[in-house]
């Protein structure tokens, strides 16, 4: 049975909507830049073995929507090329990790912990042509804040 409970009142609704209509606001954006002196994804920040772990997870869970070749689907953006990097260029890897961890997969958000999400990111870095190194990409948010996504080699 469907059950409906009514809530009335402007104050409670505004708290839910959290709306702030602003007149004549400038159309600007406020990205969170990486920390000063940050490394970039060109600095061999993941390992091939980590990318392989991420690829297995990707094939199992992500590929059904984003495609086996990461080219996206009707409902899912591509995860390679400028269609992917354009949205993330100049931002820290921590933002990408948070976005994936808190929204994916859409039907079971949060089933992948921080480690596996980071492994998938390592695979995405490999698939986008960024060089691998010896060390794994760390899963913790703080070190990821210091690594910038950069679509072109600095």
């Amino acid at each position: 049975m469907t059950r409906r409970v009514g809530f009335k009142g402007l104050i409670s609704a505004c708290a839910i909507v959290a709306l702030t209509p602003v007149l004549a606001t400038r159309l600007d954006s406020r990205p969170r830049p990486p920390r000063p002196g940050a490394r970039t994804v060109w600095d061999s920040v993941y390992s091939l073995s980590q990318a392989a772990t991420g690829e297995t997870a990707y094939a199992k869970t992500c590929a059904r929507c984003h495609g086996a070749s990461l080219s996206g689907g009707d409902e899912s953006p591509p995860l390679t090329g400028s269609g992917f990097l354009g949205n993330w260029n100049g931002l820290p890897l921590s933002d990408l990790q948070t976005r994936i961890r808190t929204t994916m997969p859409t039907d079971s958000v949060g089933i992948y912990g921080q480690q596996l999400v980071t492994d998938v990111i390592a695979f995405l870095l490999k698939a986008n042509g960024f060089p691998a190194g010896q060390a794994d990409l760390p899963k913790d948010i703080e070190p990821l804040k210091a690594i910038a996504i950069q679509s072109s080699r600095p």
Binding site: E55, A68, S82, S151
Partner: peptide, 24 residues
């Protein structure tokens, strides 16, 4: 089912560029 034989995922961009000529 749709899929790519082992190890072949990704790799469709060339140095981060689309493999195809513009206009994109």
């Amino acid at each position: 089912i749709g899929g790519v034989a082992g190890g072949g995922r990704g790799g469709l961009s060339v140095q981060g560029l689309s493999i195809f000529k513009p206009p994109y």
